[in-house]
Design a protein around this nucleic acid. Structure first.
Length: 432
RNA sequence: GGUGAUGUGUCCGAGUGGCCUAAGGAGCACGCCUCGAAAGCGUGUGUGGGUGAAAGCUCACCGUGGGUUCAAAUCCCACCGUCACCGCCA
């Protein structure tokens, strides 16, 4: 949810943001009109309600006097009661109008995406800016090798089984077996160890959440079609642990001295992948379920940009430690999620596809989520919403793809990056 | 799944129709006292909204949502959460 004060005071900033995202600019004026209508309705209700309360205070004692047998007050009481009955109707009507105005404004405010960062690249999905390249893709031809894709490698290693995944659960499901399963444990342990070193508290959050948590994080808007919902229980399967981590402090007021709060969550992620039919159908690149280690920070809004860069740094450190070539991109305004004002993706080189693909993503959501979830901070200046930031540390399936493909050897084995070896019994290679 | 209890402010806790503008206590902050501290005394201490230059005035909020009433923390209904016991169970 955006800040109503920004809308009143700097509507042009919001208009520009809507424009950059390719969303409706007229929404700004509609919201300003609704805001003004709401304020009028509130003032009308307040004044009537005040009158009603004052009248009620006269009726009490008067009725007491009449009950004790003072008949002389009866006429006065009847007069007040007549007025009170009329007033009760007026109050109810005014309250109804106030509620409608409130809901109208709320619906408008919730339809705004966050106001983009002025430095975010303009344009759509293809208009990202490449910030840097790290590492160099291997020249397999020069090594005299034919590149195998992750599915071929993983199947040969008995690490990935998509056939049985499809048999048991359908398309876009898989089993990780043997070294594949061990690889997940190794990646998670490495990720958690690095995160703890960087001040994050490990959290294993619930992967099923109530509507308030899903809505509060902004996933029931443009991303709603990708969310699994359990109708019988009115619960949602989370698409990322960002959801339960953000909602962890829902309806709380945090002491400013305890900020920033850094959490690193490990949870399954469920995605319907609606609208992705036919895309990335091979292997485990795009699946309905995978596990992920996610960083999440609550902080003072004034330092959100710095914390965002911190998260990007931690993501790069992890990618460095698994020794795959990657690039960092600054995602364009039109391709940002509704909660984010700016987003950086780290994309690893995937040899079988001969291109860079997203492995991690970090977003600065400023106060957008915290307004909806009512997560606030308190210091000597008062109480106000905190900023929230999130970023992937390791999305298991895509990371396994990057490792298998980039570290494959001519004999079908896969070299294990040094940082992972302590978690894989000290081995240097995964062998068929 | 069954039965029962319970939900009030930062916390404990009183309140079963009208000065509730939520008692009392604890905690916290500030002040007095003190060489300093403790004790004691005094003052203050929630969230959100409207209005206002400000001081202030005002509305809402007692788990959530409805209802009854001139008037609801209080009465009625539904739902949610928590706790206990029983049953089942990884």
């Amino acid at each position: 949810m955006i800040d109503i004060a920004l809308l009143r005071e700097q509507p042009d900033v919001v208009r520009a943001s809507q424009q950059a995202r390719g969303e409706r600019v007229e929404l700004v004026d509609e919201a300003i009109t609704a805001d003004s209508a709401r304020r009028g309705a509130v003032a009308a209700f307040d004044s009537l309600r005040n009158e009603q309360k004052l009248l009620g205070k006269q009726i009490g004692p008067l009725q007491g006097a009449v009950k004790k047998g003072d008949g002389s007050k009866q006429a006065e009481l009847d007069g007040l009661m007549t007025r009170a009955t009329q007033l009760a109707n007026d109050v109810a009507a005014a309250e109804q109008r106030m509620r409608e105005a409130d809901e109208a404004l709320d619906a408008l405010l919730k339809s705004f995406s966050n106001v983009i960062h002025p430095d975010a690249p303009v344009g759509g999905e293809d208009d990202y800016v490449v910030l840097e390249h790290i590492g160099t893709p291997r020249d397999f031809a020069a090594e005299g090798m034919t590149v195998k894709d992750h599915l071929e490698l993983g199947t040969a290693l008995n690490a990935i089984d998509v056939e049985r995944g499809a048999k048991v659960s359908g398309s876009r499901f898989y089993y990780l077996t043997g070294d594949g399963a061990l690889l997940e444990f190794a990646l998670v342990q490495l990720a958690i160890a690095q995160a703890m070193k960087n001040g994050f508290m490990p959290v294993i959050p619930p992967a099923l959440v109530r509507p308030a948590a899903m809505e509060g994080t902004g996933f029931l808007g443009q991303a709603a079609e990708n969310v699994y919902r359990l109708d019988a229980d009115d619960l949602y399967l989370v698409g990322t642990s960002e959801v339960p981590l953000a909602a962890y402090h829902m309806d709380e007021i945090l002491d400013a001295n305890t900020l920033p709060r850094r959490y690193v969550g490990y949870s399954p992620c469920f995605r319907r992948e609606a609208g992705a039919a036919g895309k990335d159908t091979k292997g485990i690149f795009r699946v309905h379920w995978f596990d992920k280690v996610e960083m999440f920070i609550f902080c003072d809004p004034s330092e959100a940009e710095q914390r965002h860069l911190d998260i990007l740094k931690f993501e790069k450190e992890f990618l460095d430690s698994i020794e795959v070539p990657y690039r960092v991109i600054d995602v364009a305004a039109g391709d940002l999620g509704s909660s984010a004002i700016r987003k950086y993706d780290c994309e690893a080189w995937i040899p079988s596809q001969e291109r860079y693909r997203e492995l991690t993503s970090t977003s600065n959501c400023t106060t957008f989520q915290s307004r909806r979830l009512r997560v606030r901070m308190k210091d000597s200046d008062g109480t106000r919403p905190v900023a929230t930031l999130n970023g992937t540390l390791v999305a298991i399936t895509r990371t396994i793809i990057a490792i298998l493909e980039n570290h494959q050897q001519a004999d079908g084995s896969v070299r294990i990056p040094e940082a992972l070896r302590p978690y894989l019994g000290g081995r240097e290679y995964l062998r068929p």
